[in-house]
Simulated scan of single mutants.
Amino acid sequence: MERFSSRLVYMHEDLRKFLRRLTALGGYCTAQQAKSLQLAAWDRGVRGRLRMLARLGFLRRISKYPVVYQVTKATTRLLGRDSSTRRRHTLETVQARLLAVHFYIEARAWPGEFVFKHEEKIRIFTDAGCPLSTLPQRNGKPYVRDYFMFWLPDLRIAIAMIDQPRPDQFVRLRLFLRQFLPVLRSVREQIDLFIVTPDQQRKFAYEKLLRTSRAIHKLGLGSLAPRIKTYSVRPPVPTIIEAIWPKADKYDEIADVADDSDDVIGDNSRQKHVHRLIGE
């Protein structure tokens, strides 16, 4: 593979824009999602550009069906900052990130205006009159990177939790509400909470918990219940059957170490511990 500096000549602004958005959304996409993210206007063009980005080392293919691509270290270097999106993730996490892309594409058509920069999210909460002490905290500071934030068409703020394909809806819902019910109480009509699911069955499960779970209602749901909405994407997100990285593509295994010679570190033990994990 060519050196990083040589590969940059192929990276025009449309490709950079696509990779920038994909990284902000979690780093994974199918070919159909890439088309919706405007990588190209026609199917053959999308597939061709995805293969080109993989050959250049800015994407890697990580599954057989559906065909899923992930950003690499070269992508984060191109964008000027490292990101965990290029690293190895469980299949469940990859599935959730594909769901996040699905939701972004659908919500943009409402239209919803998404906010990705953490500093801007904090500023929006502050402008809405939300005390920073009511936000989720990490190391004593407000931390909302794990959730989508976007403006609804009526200019209210929305916070979205992306579901994961595990049988723990109650635990995830309780954590989400514990983190954001204080925010709802402080600003009330200005913020909605969304629970985004990959299918109707998961959506109904969350709705049942919101209606009938005594433990959930003990959190102080009360009059705030209408501010909590469930949403199922259409069509359902396809399920990844089997990961193929790092075995399938000769470009995949070297994509993260071909940027410059000083990036190459011999670590065979890391390659052995793949199991159900994806990415570098």
Results as ranks from 00 to 15, higher is better:
Leu8Met: 09
Ser133Ala: 08
Thr126Gly: 15
Phe4His: 04
Leu209Asn: 02
Ile244Lys: 10
Leu135Phe: 07
Gln33Lys: 06
Tyr206Leu: 03
Ala54Lys: 06
Arg77Asp: 03
Lys64Glu: 06
Phe116Asn: 03
Gln200Thr: 05
Glu106Thr: 14
Asp154Ile: 01
Asp252Ser: 15
Gln179Gly: 12
Phe114Trp: 08
Tyr143Leu: 03
Ala74Ile: 01
Leu19Tyr: 04
Thr72Met: 06
Phe114Gly: 04
Arg16Met: 05
Arg44Met: 13
Phe150Met: 01
Arg145Lys: 12
His118Ile: 08
Thr90Asn: 09
Leu224Thr: 04
Phe116Gly: 00
Pro198Lys: 01
Ser186Asn: 09
Asp199Ile: 02
Ile122Phe: 10
Met11Gly: 07
Asp249Tyr: 02
Lys208Asn: 13
Pro66Glu: 00
Arg202Pro: 06
Glu113Ser: 11
Ile265Val: 13
Ile228Met: 12
Ile124Asn: 05
Leu221Val: 02
Leu37Met: 09
Gly222Thr: 00
Leu193Tyr: 04
Ser6Asp: 15
Ala215Asn: 12
Arg214Trp: 07
Lys17Ala: 10
Phe204Cys: 05
Gly80Asn: 09
Tyr231Asn: 03
Gln137Gly: 04
Gln190Lys: 14
His275Glu: 14
Thr76Ile: 04
Gly140His: 06
Ala215Tyr: 09
Leu56His: 11
Thr76Cys: 09
His118Ala: 10
Phe148Tyr: 12
Phe125Lys: 03
Met149Pro: 02
Leu277Arg: 08
Gly26Ile: 10
His89Lys: 04
Arg227Ser: 13
Lys203Thr: 15
Met1Thr: 05
Arg21Leu: 15
Val67Pro: 00
Ile162Glu: 08
Glu92Lys: 10
Leu39Cys: 03
Ala74Tyr: 01
Lys117Glu: 15
Lys247Cys: 08
Tyr147Met: 05
Phe180Cys: 04
Val264Ile: 05
Val115Arg: 06
Val68Leu: 01
Leu53Tyr: 12
Glu242Ile: 03
Glu189Ile: 04
Ala243Asn: 12
Gly222His: 03
Phe170Ile: 02
Glu2Val: 02
His118Val: 11
Leu132Asp: 00
Val237Lys: 06
Pro111Phe: 15
Val101Leu: 03
Glu92Asn: 13
Leu19Asn: 11
Asn139Ser: 08
Ile122Lys: 14
Gly279Tyr: 07
Ala160Pro: 03
Ser63Arg: 09
Gln200Gly: 00
Ile162Trp: 08
Ser83Ile: 00
Leu25Glu: 10
Leu15Tyr: 11
Val67Glu: 01
Ile105Leu: 02
Asp252Thr: 08
Gly27Leu: 11
Leu152Arg: 07
Glu242Thr: 04
Met11Phe: 09
Tyr10Lys: 11
